[in-house]
Design a protein around this nucleic acid. Structure first.
Lengths: 273, 273
DNA sequence: CGGACAATTGATCTACCTCAAAATTGGTGG
DNA sequence: CCACCAATTTTGAGGTAGATCAATTGTCCG
């Protein structure tokens, strides 16, 4: 499968224009034709971190972007690529990962609508990991030069985006703690807490239910565990009525117990409200 | 032990002025009195990433900074602090870590001269981890406002510092791969490769020898291993003549084999030369 | 010389892995 | 609506990397 940005394949590689994922969980349907308003999800996201002036909002809204619908399991940028654009996730799920020699891989982060998973490519020119969709996704591509021009005109936006990448690093550190120092049960609980809150922040989760369209193999690659062990720990959580994961959606049975079991402290997410 | 920046203790907490670590391994002795030229180590470091103009160099050199000598094992900033300054390491070693409830801790990164380990505090106002010295160290404190003023006047410096924090995140990802998907032997080898190259880049290592004044407990906290296991793996490496760690200094017996065993690819460090 | 700390070694235990087979799920075409 | 397929999940059995506990040795330094 070819990376999109590296540009080796375009047509036959299967972007379905017009075919959109079914709108779910309060997510508004997004037209596949380039739509300036689609960048509102970015504005919304940034306003959860800092307040924006009218000029800043307008400047973001008028960023030139190309919207695409991508199939599940498709690489957006590849390890080694030198992309000239960033990717804003409008709908669907994506992840960043790195493939190792022996077939092993490590997933670093999961991404949901409003995220710019490869924002770092703005300043680090060669990718040292890959970015791929997990589900069918709608993404908007924004040229680096447009973003660079934007942050030159609005230095405050530069600071906000910089902060975004710092939050990203904070999440990596939290992830590291999990992998290095928590039991399988704890780190899994921790991941569920994080994802639930992040989804809630962009309006994709409520009343302790949220989409989680991720296979157990992928969970394992993220948490440094085997799929077999993921299955066993999930069973245990189910039996304790902590969480249930079925049909791509997660139900949290006991939030307080879950956070306690995970040793979860949400401050590293830097969510408002 | 009290954090320096949180300011709860100053006098009795024991900063020794004038007492300096013995200069070793080609490291020039640094006067303990505040010395403007000391910021040259930062200039040197930044120039390993990008070239600087004369004005930029001068602006950095004239940053107001307060230099201190700190004892080993002393917190510089604490989890929860809201520092108003950043810390540039001039000599010695430091690490960032987070303490967990049950007495466990995870070390995220080791820092060497030229690093600004808490650069992120410039935009993330509350620390979500701690920073501490590992050895006696000389550090320069620079007020946030001075740095903010600097990057406002020189936007290119902002981009360079931003890039620094992105490199930081890249190192976290590499660390995660190790903890999640590599054996104890591999990840330890990987750490040694990383540290050797970073030290070499700032002139603190040559001919496969470098200082590594870190206890086995600290190595374990960084790699997610017990100190006992660290000892055993070190023994194995010693027997295979890969590396020897004695008296706070590391000797690499077979660089090529070491990198091969570690699956080490140095590009994520973004070192020039 | 003595005391604190760091490293080593031995013995035992366990969380998680690997391999392999069975059961479940979801999508597809007839 | 059912039958079928591939992908995913579940369960079982046995193996291992690395943890824990505890005692010994080595090192540094006042």
């Amino acid at each position: 499968m070819a990376s999109i940005i590296s540009g080796s394949v375009t047509g036959a590689d299967g972007w379905e224009r017009g075919a959109l994922p079914p709108a779910k969980q309060g997510e508004a349907a997004i037209p596949s034709a380039p739509d300036p308003r689609s960048l509102d999800v970015l504005i919304c996201r940034l306003e959860s971190i800092a307040s924006l002036s009218d000029e800043e909002r307008d400047a973001i809204r008028s960023l030139p972007a190309k919207t695409r619908v991508l199939k599940p399991g498709q690489d957006i940028v590849r390890d080694g690529d030198k992309p000239s654009q960033c990717c804003l996730l409008l709908s669907g799920w994506a992840c960043r990962y790195k493939q190792l020699e022996n077939g092993r891989r490590q997933i670093f982060s999961f991404h949901i609508p409003g995220d710019i998973p490869d924002l770092q490519s703005l300043h680090i020119h060669t990718m040292n990991h890959s970015l791929a969709t997990l589900t069918e996704s709608t993404v908007a591509f924004i040229q680096h030069e447009s973003l660079l021009d934007l942050i030159e005109r609005f230095p405050r936006l530069a600071a906000i985006l910089w902060r975004e990448t710092l939050n990203d690093a904070a999440a990596f550190r939290e992830w590291m703690i999990g992998i290095g120092r928590r039991t399988a049960f704890e780190r899994m609980a921790h991941l569920f807490c994080e994802l639930y809150l992040r989804l809630q922040a962009v309006g994709l989760a409520r009343s302790y239910r949220c989409p989680l369209p991720i296979t157990q193999v992928e969970l394992g690659d993220a948490l440094g565990l085997s799929n077999v062990h993921i299955s066993r720990v999930l069973k245990e959580m189910r039996e304790q009525n902590l969480v249930t994961l079925r049909g791509g959606s997660l139900t949290i049975g006991a939030w307080d117990e879950l956070t306690r079991a995970a040793g979860f402290d949400p401050t590293y997410l830097h969510l408002e409200k």
